[in-house]
Design a protein around this nucleic acid. Structure first.
Lengths: 219, 219, 219, 219
DNA sequence: CATGAATGAGGATTCATTCAT
DNA sequence: GATGAATGAATCCTCATTCAT
């Protein structure tokens, strides 16, 4: 393993300066927050630079402009959720438990990572022009769909799931019932005149979601 | 020299007085499209004025700036869906048919009015700061929730629906499974490697959604 | 004749404000100077706006950016020299006198309008990408070449000019011997260790140029 | 990891000492091209460094910044043409042949070295501020003017040239008729609606130039 | 000798909004 | 009521140059 300059700086007890990787990471992190908060159009390059404790010029040096930076952030976001999903090890559980775990996980992931939702919304506003360029996302997503498909098949063969359910439709629905609630938490709280983000409300929602999916899938 | 709307009206022998309303309407229509296409932040006042065949100054005259214009557009959008929902006359149908009609209606409304979705997304990006000011939306929404609540109760008393289902949660879910699909049609088509907006795909989806809700609600 | 707002303003004794034509003209004039002084790349939009006593935004409003502004300035410059050439009325003079008048005019025009030279140099640095779009320049230039061609033919038929001289080559040479001297006045003054722009030097040069051309053309 | 020039030299068994000169030369060559293509203002230090396969820092190390680098390039350019001129050995030819050779040489030099022209144009845009600092250019130029002066005197004494011709004026004209044509090849090709750089056009031009000068100088 | 990370001062361009008529 | 000219404050991006190793 090569000794990075970051490690050298650390070893020398100095603050992280002149460390390309660290700077890139800081920019990426700051960009994620800024894009999540304000969308692609509303995000400000200056603000990202400032929050990253980096020079604005570095953003162009490392990421070649705002758009490409957004694309990188978006890819990272997709990688994040897909990686987490892979770690669920649904195969180690019996079908019903596995399905419930997936619904609960999806919900909790959105809850913990609302920035993922804002990023995706922003990307859809831009007609997915950044995602179109990404090959990685397709590959990892395919893998994920495969995982759910296997789960469904296993459940069917064990006689606990109904046959004939499309894994893509199921995936979409599992995502939808969580995503929609979170992304519309502000307007929803007004329209329905209740605080959708209150602790009880969140708990109630996840139960409702689990029940919705179980009733749909179980035999 | 361009013919102004005022002149046109004059030429047509119409009184000038109605121009004000017409101009307002044109601005509102143009604004809806522009906001839907680009979000609040991405929309351009110049473009709205141009598309409305109106003077930019008029936007400030009638709507007091971009933000307030957005708020008006948003309120109109909510009025639109709420009005359409009221016309469903769910009471004239037996519970199951009424519920299916509602699910189908919701799906079709989103499909026909994707601008509603973009506007709501934009509003959530801005933490619902415009909607907070609106009183009308709360009132009409309350009415809508009441409608669903009655339907549920009727179904329960007739023994076709399960008891104990929260009308708000149900509403949220009915909306979610349609809204999510439409708003994420661009990224979704890439991630799942299929054209989510293809005719067959849309038909398949609405059936899946109906089944999801029926299984959740029916006894 | 329509009453322009400029005239109205004038009539009212007010300073020229809110006068589109006047603002455009001021921007154009300022741009000519700035481009002449620093070339296209070296010119600063801020400086042009300031010198034009106009808002920077107006430059984009009226001229659609720096490049297009340069193109307009360049076209104006070509129009200027071509218009002046047309006013020479070489047909009213006998061939030799007409030719001498042309040489002297060309020299004096460059001397009075060094900005024309700088603009053309800048345009050549950019491989004539702006001029390529202009149709007017081609037409007026064609007319000018025709004028010289007629002069040559007249001189030949009167027996004072040699036959077989290409008007384009002659034009190029008449321009060259003046243009080169003026455009390279700074380096030339150093290289040849004499002030090329001194009054005597200029007079000497025009005589030399006239003699060069007369000897080339006369029978 | 990219192989640095230092490593290459090492691998080739060469002493590291020569690398300095090689790096300087590479930078100079890259700078000449970049300045020629885009002028002083339009040239980019990054691009020069990249093309020179050198580190940007080296430019500052060896040349003390962009301006001084330009000055060096410019001096080299002048040295180039002056050196070539000295090699003409005009004294070995009879006056007329020598003069024709000079005209032809000048033309061909510009044709082969259009970068010389761009550099000189750039320098004149900057009012010769770099050249002013150079002493060498003055000396070599003086020598060149002397060469032409001697040629003229020899021609006069042999009765083939007219007396009274100023060598500086003649030099200027010989340069002008070639330089102007080349520097304005882009705009010229449009204005005169013919490809000035076509093979035939170039041949025609050099003949025209030779005739222009011969008619001017010969008795 | 050489590297590449970092920077501050601009540079062109855009935008919502106000002003004068 | 309507128009279009005008503006200042951003906003993204670029550049020559210096710093730390």
């Amino acid at each position: 393993m090569r000794t990075t300059s970051a490690q050298k700086a650390k070893a020398a007890g100095k603050p992280r300066l002149r460390d390309a990787e660290a700077t890139k990471a800081r920019i990426l992190e700051a960009a994620k927050k800024e894009f999540a908060k304000n969308g692609l159009g509303g995000a400000r390059v200056d603000v990202i630079a400032e929050k990253a404790n980096a020079n604005k010029r570095m953003i162009y040096h490392y990421f070649d402009g705002k758009d490409h930076l957004f694309q990188t952030v978006l890819e990272d976001a997709y990688n994040g959720i897909r990686t987490a999903e892979q770690k669920l090890n649904l195969n180690d559980l019996e079908p019903k438990a596995a399905l419930e775990k997936l619904v609960r996980f999806t919900w909790e992931y959105y809850l913990k990572h609302p920035e993922f939702i804002t990023l995706v919304n922003s990307e859809n506003l831009h007609r997915a022009k950044h995602l179109k360029k990404s090959q990685v996302v397709r590959a990892t997503s395919r893998k994920f769909v495969g995982m759910v498909k296997e789960l469904l098949e296993r459940g069917v063969s064990e006689g606990v799931f109904r046959p004939g359910i499309d894994p893509v439709q199921l995936n979409l629905t599992i995502a939808a019932i969580g995503y929609y609630y979170i992304t519309n938490r502000f307007t929803g709280s007004i329209v329905f005149e209740r605080d959708l983000m209150a602790k009880d409300a969140l708990e109630e929602r996840v139960q409702f979601n689990i029940e919705t999916i179980m009733r749909m899938v179980c035999a």
